[in-house]
Design a protein around this nucleic acid. Structure first.
Length: 446
RNA sequence: GGGCUGGUAGCUCAGUUGGCAGAGCAGCGGACUUUUAAUCCGAAGGUCGUGGGUUCGAGACCCACCCGGCCCA
């Protein structure tokens, strides 16, 4: 490979995007950038020929893709440069790049024309590279443990695995409505029935609900299931996955974000749901945990609630308002009340609780795990309970096909879901989910 | 859905009490043969988000709407 101080000066060819052009009469300087860095072009009337030199300067604009060749040397200031004797425009830019000095700041333009954002803002470019590194790290850990990566339907005849409003679409060949998945859980569990013992999928889920700084209707989820694993195994796995992601993105598990450090080094803090609710709302689920006691606690803490809400919704609202915002460092919230999730196995020592944890970081839910319910009879009863207690339009319909699969025998298993966008947010130190999604959707500019 | 806040040249932003629409950079023309955000000279560049209203006069004030951002629900 040619080096800049070789003798005689090596002849090289370079190509890239023109990012700077300084015309100084008989000599001009240009910078070409590609994925590996920048190189300076030394354009000289004599080296290039008077006619070619004049034409080149007439034609060139910052933003063009250019290829050039010539001898490699150092300028008087020591910068390695190509003394160009041949030059071609490989692609012409008709519109100017965002200003080199002030860059592109308008958030609307940054989101609508993300290619300009990435082009102009190094930090943004690096953030999306980090996102890819994070997803690769998650795959690497799971692959190392022998998990099988699979693909399950995005278009589903019945939606399940969560509580959310689905996007509805029309499936012409089958002549019926289909749903974009809100989760892939019920398909991955069918694969446990099939005999695969470790499966995972990283995919887009779709929830036809609000957009805010931590919710995007189209988001990325990792779900993985392991036969014969218990919740402790899932706890270890969750911490390993996130720690590996932090190492991949930041080179450390202690991530500096603004003025504080998020410490993802395992083991993380553990907290039971009961203790958290007691500390946050002053209600003891094992004292008077009745509906009226919960409503009283909401009122005492000025949490707006609706008396018609079922217990699960009320609990969720209390936790969201009074507990979750306090969970800044990675925290495992454990031992959830049974009604909070219909797909989780009950604690063997106390059927009021399920074997579930969620991970919170920066006050935001980032992961969710259960010991999976694999008893087809109890699963049917719990799903029917949930369907009959429907509240609003996010009630989950009973999936008979899934229950049929369970009736053929699903091994005991642990399952874990990680919100990939939110993981990236935490590791990148940004507070808006749009900052980690390449092309977030915005309203039409009508 | 509510509150706050923003939308002015390609980009980043000023615009005072309601009185001629501004700057820097980019772009255009010119000078300049080792520059580094080159420098210097010159000219140009506007649906002030949209539509109404008040006024002799509106970028600014009032009303409605559109598109963002932050916070709350």
């Amino acid at each position: 490979m040619a080096r800049v101080d070789d003798e005689p000066p090596p002849d090289v060819d370079v190509a890239g995007r023109l990012v700077g052009l300084r015309r100084m009469g008989g000599t001009s300087f240009a910078h070409l950038r590609d994925g590996s860095g920048e190189v300076q072009l030394f354009l000289n009337r004599q080296a290039l020929g008077a006619d070619a030199y004049r034409k080149a300067l007439e034609l060139l604009d910052v933003g063009d893709f250019v290829s050039a060749g010539g001898s490699l040397f150092r300028t008087r200031s020591g910068e390695p440069s190509v003394r160009v004797d041949r030059l071609q425009v490989a692609a012409k830019a008709l519109r100017p790049l965002p200003a080199k000095w002030h860059g592109l700041r308008d958030p609307e333009t940054r989101f609508r024309q993300r290619y300009l954002d990435i082009l102009a803002n190094d930090e943004v470019r690096r953030r999306f590279e980090a996102r890819t590194a994070i997803v690769s790290a998650l795959r690497r850990v799971l692959d190392t443990y022998g998990y099988l990566e699979v693909e399950t339907p995005t278009l589903q005849p019945i939606y399940g695995g969560g509580a959310a409003v689905p996007f509805v679409t029309s499936y012409a060949a089958l002549n019926r409505d289909y749903y974009l998945r809100i989760a892939d859980e019920l398909y991955l569990k069918r694969l446990l029935v099939a005999g695969y013992e470790r499966v995972y999928e990283i995919c887009k889920n779709f929830r036809n609900e609000g957009i805010d700084s931590s919710h995007c209707p189209e988001f990325t989820m990792l779900e993985c299931y392991q036969a014969f694993a218990d919740l402790g195994d899932m706890r270890d796995l969750a911490q390993q996955l996130v720690a590996a992601a932090a190492e991949a993105a930041c080179g450390t598990t202690r991530v500096q974000v603004d003025d504080h450090v998020l410490d993802f080094t395992p083991p993380w803090r553990r907290l039971t749901y009961r203790d958290a609710l007691l500390a946050g709302a002053g209600v003891d689920l094992e004292g008077d945990g009745s509906l009226s006691a919960l409503n009283d606690a909401a009122e005492a803490n000025e949490v707006p609630v609706d008396p018609s809400w079922p217990r699960a919704k009320l609990l969720d609202e209390l936790m969201k308002t009074l507990v979750e915002p306090t969970l800044v460092q990675p925290t495992l919230l454990e031992r959830y009340p049974t009604e909070t999730a219909p797909l989780a196995k009950r604690c063997p020592d106390d059927p009021r609780y399920i074997e579930r944890f969620e991970v919170f970081v920066n006050g935001m839910e980032m992961a969710n795990a259960y010991t999976e319910l694999n008893d087809p009879l109890e699963q049917r009863a719990r799903m029917e309970d949930q369907a009959s207690a429907r509240h609003g339009d996010d009630a989950t319909p009973v999936d008979e096909d899934f229950l049929l699969a369970l009736e053929h025998g699903m091994p005991p298993a642990g399952g874990l879901g990680i919100g990939v966008d939110r993981l990236v947010m935490a590791l990148a130190g940004v507070s808006n989910i749009r900052e980690v999604i390449l092309f977030p959707q915005l309203r039409d500019r009508s």
